[in-house]
Design a protein around this nucleic acid. Structure first.
Lengths: 221, 221
DNA sequence: GCAAAAGTGTTACAATTACACCCATGT
DNA sequence: ACATGGGTGTAATTGTAACACTTTTGC
């Protein structure tokens, strides 16, 4: 029996779309299929440590956020031998989005979660679980900010939520709600995006959020 | 590296208290300490299967509900060697509450979650995680019913929630809210509890719940 | 008849929803 | 001047929270 970790890494952009980082397998089984990056846990290594190491080796990416997702242990999930995989769930900022390095063994690429290729092993199940988790978690924890730049125009947040929740959101109500939570700092900087009125930049204030959370406040949309 | 499963099993009662099932270790390390029941996963066995088997072997108990909790993989969590444990979270009805069978190797007992003994390994962390999960999960999924008898007076439900949430609940509002969800069948049977007016019995209608859920309804308190 | 638990409605307040026009910029 | 995206307020509705007395039984 072997123990592996796999990481479903989400990125946002460019434009309103959420993507996941996949690697192309160069060897059998499932040669040339896309798969979630991951690998075996070393004997003396922590689980998260293993995730960071494997991601570094296979894709060169650095995460902004990581949490454990679920463990998959069906005895037949790998055709060769029994492998139990502890799956993780990570988020990256747009800066990291482009620095996906292919190594000699794998080719790494972003794939929109709306058009996914066939995946190796039970990775479709894992990815599905991760997408469900992301979709629901953004409504009760402020993790969406980990997918945006440090400072962002409000419309980015709005677009992220509409594309993840898959439905229209009333712009006025959404802005009112988010701003009323008091976790965003409004900067005195404006940014222009082609045509249209320049937008103010906002920044998520993590300290303030933890402070509010300690006082019994709960983030909820 | 070895893989284990551990199961935090909650029971309710008698009277307003939530308990967890622990086993007393007969051998070192942590000889005579209380621990969460569990054991190694066999080569060809599914994870949940392993949980059911271990619980049967160590405590003789049958579960009403089981879900995966979290995986614990700190390299030093077991002083002997590297053991990664996938923790589960189970609920039993009061009927099962008393049939806790001790085997030759272990002594099994219910412990109120308000007065816990010192636990072996990192089992205090696991148990804490499980309690947090139980507390929050009863507010967004109807799992509380798995801790009550099939039919129960409304006050049982009320007491379960007050003791789990650790705060008073307005009886009238709570009843209104729960009944308005339309998941409970009211039976034409009354039950007497010492002094006081006899109470009507209720029953959770699982089919109805899944039907509502499919129609986009979300349980939420 | 008194203690103990079950049952029941109304009103004030807070939160959510629905909805449409003006503003600042680029072309 | 027109197209593009940014920014803003109010009213109706809905949901939540607060609150106290009557009923049925055992003793």
């Amino acid at each position: 029996m072997k123990l592996a970790v796999d990481a479903v890494v989400f990125g946002y952009g460019p434009s309103p779309k959420v993507s996941v980082l996949l690697v192309k397998r160069k060897y059998d089984p499932f040669k040339n299929h896309w798969a979630i990056p991951g690998g075996f846990v070393e004997e003396e290594e922590g689980l998260e440590e293993a995730v960071y190491r494997e991601l570094e080796e296979e894709t060169g990416i650095k995460l902004n956020y990581l949490e454990q997702l679920y463990s998959f242990g069906n005895p037949k999930r790998d055709p060769r031998e029994r492998i139990v995989s502890i799956a993780y769930f990570g988020l990256v900022r747009p800066d990291a989005y482009n620095v996906v390095a292919a190594t000699d063994a794998k080719e790494a690429e972003w794939h929109s979660i709306d058009h996914l290729p066939e995946l190796a092993f039970d990775h479709d199940t894992i990815l599905e679980t991760a997408i469900r988790r992301l979709r629901s978690k953004i409504t009760y924890e402020p993790i969406g900010f980990e997918l945006l730049d440090e400072t962002f125009p409000f419309s980015d947040l709005e677009n992220l939520y509409t594309s993840l929740l898959g439905r229209e959101i009333d712009r006025r109500n959404f802005r009112k709600k988010i701003l009323s939570l008091g976790m965003l700092d409004e900067l005195e900087i404006k940014v222009k995006k082609g045509a249209g009125r320049p937008a103010n930049l906002f920044q998520f204030n993590k300290e303030r959020y933890f402070q509010l959370k300690n006082d019994g406040f709960v983030f909820e949309l």
